[in-house]
Write a protein that binds this DNA or RNA. Structure first.
Length: 154
DNA sequence: GCCAACGTTGGC
DNA sequence: GCCAACGTTGGC
């Protein structure tokens, strides 16, 4: 039962995993999210076929670098069960997993990155964009009109 | 390296 | 359930 396509923004640190890594891999499980709001978006609201901006953070030029599609339905993040993983969560069980993720699929690089500074310069037309306010959120929804206005900057 | 924002934890 | 302390994110 697919609803209308939704739009998202997902952050990664390019030193760890960036747009070039994603292109190489084709698709990738979006593991390691340990924030309840971000998890809820992936677990409860994302649908295969939704589109997402790939945002690079903690780097010299923070901004949006590419487009991805949500490749499949949510499922438990395997890293939560892996004692050797930095994302291991001792409180999580296979019967009652705490963390869920989706696979994302590479769609394309933007023709040029749309940097945070440029987004901020357009803040009046992007009112309510969570990127500006929810600093600690690594997965967030993007309103359709914001999505279009951002892509129009490309 | 600094620090603002803010989610999470834990004492009560 | 409140709220202060703490820890993390992430831009600059």
């Amino acid at each position: 039962m697919a609803g209308p396509r939704k739009y998202w923004l997902m952050k990664s640190e390019p030193d760890a995993f960036g747009i070039d890594d994603l292109r190489q891999r084709g698709s990738e499980p979006w593991s390691g999210v340990r924030n309840y709001q971000a998890r809820n978006f992936m677990r409860d609201q994302m649908q295969p076929g939704d589109l997402a901006f790939l945002y690079h953070s903690s780097c010299p030029q923070p901004g949006i670098y590419g487009l991805m599609t949500i490749a499949g339905p949510p499922y438990p993040d395997p890293t939560q069960f892996d004692r050797k993983s930095p994302y291991y969560d001792a409180a999580s069980t296979r019967e009652q997993p705490r963390w869920h993720l989706v696979d994302v699929k590479y769609q394309r690089h933007l023709k040029r990155p749309i940097l945070l500074a440029e987004l901020r310069a357009n803040e009046s037309r992007l009112k309510g964009l969570k990127l500006f306010s929810a600093v600690r959120l690594s997965v967030m929804p993007v309103a359709p009109e914001h999505w279009e206005r951002i892509l129009a900057l490309e």
